[in-house]
Write a protein that binds this DNA or RNA. Structure first.
Lengths: 228, 228
DNA sequence: ACCTGAACACCGTTCAAGT
DNA sequence: ACCTGAACACCGTTCAAGT
């Protein structure tokens, strides 16, 4: 069985304790901060959605927030932190949308499909997998736990279940990465003169993904059968 | 055989040729080109290897080649073309290194391992999968043909063999992408407080990759058995 | 304490001018 | 015909100065 590492609540906890130091860690008197991290992430999400991810910059954030670019820079900490925070928010929203079935086959499929959709609609999440290891936000642990748990119930030892989760994870990352890399205009028609073009003529990423999942599940099945 | 469009010497060339038009396709008289595409790719490869990929720029190329940045820019066509050419060269070298076994299991493993090594040592190749669809150079067709052929011999219909190739391909891209994204300093030790950290403690990307391959091959095997 | 303008060290690309 | 300097429109980040 899997142990939840900490409190599963997402809220920062009100801390109803009497009157000693409040929860705000490192802020004194003077002028209050004109900008919160939340506001920056809100604006960044808006820019990424409206103008595209490559229009997102501290200068653009400054314009949108009516503040000097350096203010947002210092508020958030740097470009890497901005991206990390953006990914974290998206992943957190994503983990809330799951509706888990019972059977382990279905659990794996739901995970793979939902995860694929997440990355296709949020390119930054995809990119974060090749720029820093992602899906490490503590909230996503619930997703990992569900899939790994299902594989354990199917009969795999815990460590093998964890690695098996990674196989599915790696496949989905790779598949989506290749599809996105082809650009939005790509309709799945490979170059005629290549071998792929000759064999396939036309090429559906959905079919490719589904077959990939089938192969993976067949593979897991045979390993489950062997360890049973 | 490939025809060299111009002299490979770095000097501006005295043009000792009589007076008719040579084999050069679209170049008239005037001053001969001071730069060939080959020279640009050579310099770009050197910079990428010595200083890292993010030090590669037209300005840096200009310094190294003793020429104005805009000259190399025009010679190669633009940033995308520079990257594409760089990937093409690396992939071409890669396709020459294969030693193919007989059994289809072994063919799949050799492909996956060699492809993984290629992307780990040449980050631009990996990146090109998320920036444009890669491995489309005609030379790489030989590799695709070998793997697909082996799967056909195993009993899969040609179209399914092609899609099955993609499953392996997607997995390798994803796995490598995630590993590289963790950075060179990453020793495979996941964060303690996450579920992954609790289950695995330490985490070997090699083991993860090998298990992934095992699952994929088991999956292919069961599909082969079904269609046989 | 917090905010900010200017500066630094970079980018890719356009384009008109030089030879 | 080919090469190039200057300019354009951007970057992230540092830092000293302002309030």
């Amino acid at each position: 069985m899997l142990v939840e590492p900490g409190s599963p609540t997402a809220t920062p906890r009100p801390t109803a304790v009497p009157d000693l130091v409040e929860e705000a860690p490192r802020r004194r008197r003077g002028r209050p901060n004109v900008l919160s991290r939340e506001q920056v992430i809100d604006a960044a999400t808006a820019i990424a959605n409206e103008d595209g991810l490559d229009r997102l910059s501290f200068r653009a954030l400054g314009v949108r927030l009516g503040v000097a670019p350096m203010t947002v820079h210092r508020t958030i900490g740097g470009l890497d932190d901005l991206h990390a925070e953006l990914v974290r928010r998206t992943v957190d929203e994503f983990t809330a949308t799951f509706v888990w079935p019972d059977e382990w086959h279905a659990v794996v499929r739901v995970f793979a499909r939902t995860f694929r959709d997440l990355m296709r609609t949020h390119p930054l999440v995809l990119e974060s997998h090749s720029r820093r290891g992602a899906l490490v936000s503590t909230e996503s642990d619930a997703v990992v736990a569900k899939v790994v748990g299902a594989l354990c119930d199917a009969g795999l030892p815990e460590v093998e279940a964890m690695y098996t989760f990674f196989v599915v994870y790696d496949f989905v990352v790779g598949h989506t990465s290749v599809q996105i890399g082809r650009g939005d205009d790509d309709t799945g028609r490979p170059e005629r003169h290549t071998l792929v073009g000759q064999i396939l003529g036309e090429h559906s990423y959905d079919a490719r993904f589904d077959l990939g999942l089938d192969v993976l599940i067949a593979g897991i099945e045979s390993r489950v059968a062997r360890t049973a």
